Amino acid sequence: MTADLEVPGSWRDYGAAGLPSPLRAALEAFVEHGYHGTSVREIAARAGLSVPGLYHHYPSKQSLLQGLLELTMADLLRRSEQAIAEAGDDRLAQFDAVVESLLRFHMYRREQAFVGSTEMRSLDGDYRPRYIGHRVRQQRMVDEIVLGGVDAGVFVTADPKGAARAVATMCVGVSTWYRVDGELGADELIERNLEYARAIVGYVAR
């Protein structure tokens, strides 16, 4: 099973997601009707394939959901890791970078992020732990930065892990309301949400 993905570049760069046509069709259908409200026949029609042709690439509707979420999480984790690495050793720079990366992802990959959040309940038991592991890995990036920032005196929150969860939840929530044609542009929204995130972890400018 090969995927025609976009070539990895800067973590801030977002073009078309480059999903293979069956996954793109599944994504559109899952957003509109939900996983359980979508038939394999509908996905095949959207992809311009026969049902047997679709099954040649993805043997079940569940495999389509899993394939979509694997690519989504691989993209998210790659961007977060790249953002943190480019920030260097400064804890505030790392924090700002991972928050901005999460915000941009949930703005520009809004539909994929939405399906990832809402259809976790639809995952088969064999795959669900793997997907949860991806999400835990992302959360731990934020946790470690906040904990390190508290140890270094950069952040003063009394509950570093709780604050880190609150920051991540705020970023993920963007996927439910952000619109490209909204009142505020992406950069302005990111700037405002960085202020909120810094307040959550108790950053005080010196």
Rank of each mutant, 00 (worst) to 15 (best):
G34K: 01
L194V: 04
E42F: 02
E119Q: 12
L19Q: 02
T38F: 01
D13V: 06
G148Q: 02
I132H: 15
C171M: 11
S101C: 09
G53T: 01
V201R: 01
L194P: 02
V150W: 06
A16Q: 10
E6F: 13
I84W: 00
D151M: 08
L77K: 04
G48I: 01
E144Y: 06
Y196T: 13
A158V: 11
Y203V: 07
V146N: 00
E28G: 06
P52M: 02
E188G: 03
M73K: 08
H33W: 07
L184Y: 13
S60H: 09
E6K: 14
L147H: 09
L49S: 04
V204R: 15
E81Y: 09
G48E: 05
A186N: 02
R121S: 13
V156E: 15
A44G: 02
L65C: 08
Y196H: 12
S50C: 02
Q112F: 03
A16F: 08
R24K: 12
M107K: 05
I132Y: 15
T176A: 14
S63H: 13
R192C: 07
A3G: 10
D75R: 03
R121E: 13
W177G: 12
P129G: 08
E195S: 14
L103I: 08
Y127A: 04
R206K: 15
T118K: 06
V99H: 04
I190K: 05
F155A: 05
H134A: 09
R179L: 12
I132E: 15
R110Q: 11
Y196I: 12
R179I: 09
E6Y: 14
A164R: 03
L71N: 09
R12D: 05
I132A: 15
R206F: 13
S117A: 14
V201M: 04
S63G: 10
V174I: 14
D143A: 06
I190E: 06
Y35M: 02
G15I: 00
L54T: 00
D75H: 05
A74P: 00
